[in-house]
Computed example of a mutant assay.
Amino acid sequence: MLPKVNFVDETEIRPPYVHRKRRAGEQILYFIRHGEMHLLEDGKPLILKPGDVCLLDKDRTHEGTKATTCNYYYVHFMHGEMELVDAKEEEVARQQFERRRKAMVKEPCEPYGSYDESKIWLPKYWHIKKVTDQIHIDELIKQAIAEDYSTFENHKILCACRIQEALIEIARCFATAERERTAGGFPESYYKVQKIQEWLNASYAADISGERLEEEFDGNFDYMNRIFKRVTGQTIFQYLTAVRMEHAKRLIAQTTMHTGVIGQEVGYPDEYYFSKVFKRNVGMSPRAYADSLSKNKS
C-alpha cells in the first residue's frame, strides 16, 4: 500500500524560527542534511543531527524547543496501514523483526505470494551511519520532490513510489544495524556477507569460483565462507545453488525454454550436470518438475 504524500520538499530553518506547537494529523518524516533540529514530542526531547531520520506520529503533539540552523527534507504523508508500536509491544515487535530478517538472510528469493504478508519495520528515531545509505535515501527523496512538482500524468503515484522506496531503504538500513548489534561481535563480517549475497543474486549465471570471489571481495575465500555460514547457516556455494535453483524453477514455470538453455541461463553450461544438480536440490528432474506444474494447473 503506497503512502498518500501531501507535501515533500527540502527546506532550511534559521534563528529565530522555532517549530510551532501542533498535532499534524498525518505522519511526518524528517531527514536531516545539515545542522540540528530540536523538538519535543509529547514531552520527549529529540535532537536531530545530520544523517538522522525521525517519524513524528500523527496523533502526538510536537513543537520546537530551540532556534537553530537546520537543512532537512520533510515528508507529510498518510498511510492507512502504519501502526505505532508502544513500549509494551516493542520487544515482541523486535523479536518478530529479528525472525523475519534471519529468514530473509537465509532465503535466496522472497516468494511471490509473500507480498500480502510483508511488513516494513521502521525506527521512530534513528541515525543512518553509512554515507552511501544516506546518499541513496537523499536521492530517492530528491526524485520524489521532482515528481511532486511534475505536471505529467500519474506524477503523484510516482512520488509516492519514491517515498515508499525511501522508507524501505531506511527499514533495510535499520534491519542491518539491528543484526549487526546482535551478531556477536562481527558487524563488519555481517556487512561483507550481505555484499556477497547481493553479488551472488546479481551474478548467479556467471562462472563463479573461490578464486573469483577472492578477486571480487579482496579476501580469503575460506574466511569468507566461514563467516557466510555463521550468518546464513549455508556455505557460499550452497547459497549460490539455491539462488540458481530458484531462477531455474521460475524459467521452467514461465517459459518454454529447453532444459539445456535454462541450465545455461542459471550458470550450468552442461545440461546433464544441471539436471543432476536440479534433481538433487528440488527432488525431481527439470522435466518432472515441469510436468508437475502442468498437472497442478489442469
Results as ranks from 00 to 15, higher is better:
residue 80 G to I: 06
residue 81 E to A: 13
residue 81 E to T: 13
residue 81 E to Q: 13
residue 81 E to L: 12
residue 82 M to H: 04
residue 82 M to R: 10
residue 82 M to W: 04
residue 83 E to P: 01
residue 84 L to K: 15
residue 85 V to I: 15
residue 85 V to T: 12
residue 85 V to E: 10
residue 86 D to L: 06
residue 87 A to R: 14
residue 87 A to S: 14
residue 87 A to L: 15
residue 88 K to S: 15
residue 88 K to E: 15
residue 88 K to L: 15
residue 88 K to G: 10
residue 89 E to P: 01
residue 89 E to L: 11
residue 89 E to R: 12
residue 89 E to I: 00
residue 89 E to W: 09
residue 89 E to N: 15
residue 90 E to R: 15
residue 90 E to Y: 13
residue 90 E to I: 03
residue 91 E to K: 15
residue 92 V to R: 15
residue 92 V to E: 15
residue 94 R to M: 11
residue 95 Q to E: 15
residue 97 F to G: 01
residue 97 F to Q: 12
residue 97 F to M: 12
residue 97 F to D: 12
residue 97 F to H: 15
residue 98 E to W: 07
residue 98 E to T: 05
residue 99 R to C: 04
residue 99 R to L: 11
residue 99 R to D: 12
residue 101 R to F: 11
residue 101 R to W: 11
residue 102 K to E: 09
residue 102 K to G: 09
residue 103 A to M: 08
residue 103 A to T: 04
residue 104 M to D: 10
residue 104 M to N: 08
residue 104 M to Y: 07
residue 105 V to C: 04
residue 105 V to T: 10
residue 105 V to K: 04
residue 105 V to P: 00
residue 106 K to N: 09
residue 106 K to C: 05
residue 107 E to Q: 12
residue 108 P to G: 03
residue 109 C to W: 10
residue 109 C to E: 14
residue 109 C to D: 10
residue 110 E to A: 10
residue 110 E to T: 11
residue 111 P to A: 06
residue 111 P to I: 08
residue 111 P to F: 02
residue 113 G to L: 11
residue 113 G to D: 11
residue 113 G to P: 00
residue 113 G to I: 11
residue 113 G to H: 07
residue 114 S to E: 13
residue 114 S to Q: 06
residue 114 S to A: 13
residue 114 S to I: 04
residue 115 Y to Q: 09
residue 115 Y to G: 04
residue 116 D to R: 10
residue 116 D to A: 14
residue 118 S to R: 10
residue 119 K to T: 05
residue 119 K to D: 03
residue 120 I to S: 05
residue 120 I to P: 00
residue 120 I to Q: 02
residue 121 W to F: 15
residue 121 W to E: 06
residue 121 W to T: 05
residue 121 W to A: 08
residue 121 W to H: 12
residue 122 L to Y: 08
residue 122 L to D: 05
residue 123 P to L: 06
residue 123 P to T: 06
residue 124 K to V: 13
residue 124 K to Q: 14
residue 125 Y to N: 10
residue 125 Y to S: 14
residue 125 Y to P: 01
residue 126 W to P: 02
residue 126 W to M: 07
residue 126 W to L: 07
residue 126 W to E: 09
residue 127 H to T: 14
residue 127 H to I: 01
residue 127 H to K: 14
residue 128 I to S: 03
residue 128 I to Y: 03
residue 129 K to S: 10
residue 129 K to P: 00
residue 129 K to R: 13
residue 129 K to W: 05
residue 129 K to C: 05
residue 130 K to E: 13
residue 131 V to A: 08
residue 131 V to F: 06
residue 131 V to D: 03
residue 132 T to R: 13
residue 133 D to F: 02
residue 133 D to K: 07
residue 134 Q to P: 02
residue 134 Q to A: 03
residue 135 I to W: 02
residue 135 I to R: 06
residue 138 D to W: 03
residue 139 E to Y: 06
residue 139 E to H: 10
residue 140 L to W: 00
residue 141 I to F: 01
residue 142 K to T: 03
residue 142 K to P: 00
residue 143 Q to A: 07
residue 143 Q to C: 04
residue 145 I to Q: 04
residue 145 I to R: 02
residue 145 I to P: 01
